[in-house]
Amino acid sequence: MIQLLVAGLTVGSGYALVALGIHIILRATRIVNFAQGEFSVVGGLFALTFVQVLHANSWFALIGATLCGFVLGLAFERLVLRPAARSGEIGLTIATIGTVFILLYGHALVPGWGSLPQPLPAFSGEASDVITAGGVAVGVQSLWAFALLLVALGALYLFFERTYYGKAIRAASNNPLGARLVGIDVRTTGAISVGLAIALAAYGGTIIGPIALVGGAGGVAITIKGFVGAIVGGLESPVGCVAGGLLVGVVEKLLQGVFSYGVADPIVYSLLLLGLLLRPQGLFAARGAIRD
């Protein structure tokens, strides 16, 4: 039971960061990024390259992957989101779905990445190391993943609360016109938001790498589960997104433990539909479709 819980919190850390990334991009650009999970996968693969090619340790790889994610996010904003913005919400949504294709099949073409998932080296000791406390064995890598999630959240909090750019991004998300009037470059803050969100995805893909492996075709599932988390916790609240992401991880592992592997996912996805239906506030313009 405790093991399932820990395993759930570990994969949940990844979902939480994807959920948070979806939240940040949604706030900045009013769009749900369907490729968020793919960026998480690609981020983990960046870390793998740092390890394999540059013989870096996992810590250095984590920093490298996060920075690469940031740059990739800036490119994504400049090459996909900004040009597609004219095509409206559905056009933008389709453009991010197109990006899923590019990343999903594109990463398999990169030498050393391939289409099969691979493990990332452990952050300390061996990947199989456990700490036994009170008769329960907990994986060290799971603890690292969880600790690194908290580090990221702390850093984000400081960024958004204490720095000029963080405050500017929040202002621009709240009221783009108002922000522009007080001299904030809304385009730049939008680009930085997207870069930050993708960097988070890459970071999330890396911290769970030693346990959940990196690479593979699971990006869409990660997106959806991150989104489920964001919906359950509340798309408009960053804390809710993180809590929701963790919760989804736990529920998924519990379901997998109780039922079979294949039953868990449909149930989690049903949660998404239920969550969307039962939490109308803040999700739709107003109750009912045609009220304005």
Binding site: V32, F34, G262, Y269, L272, L283, A285
Partner: peptide
Amino acid sequence: FVALRFRGHYLAMATLAFGLIAVGCFHE
């Protein structure tokens, strides 16, 4: 009927979830 509640990217997400649920049901 369910989709009446959604617009734009929420509708995309909801229908995507439907597709995933359907394939999960076939598989199981």
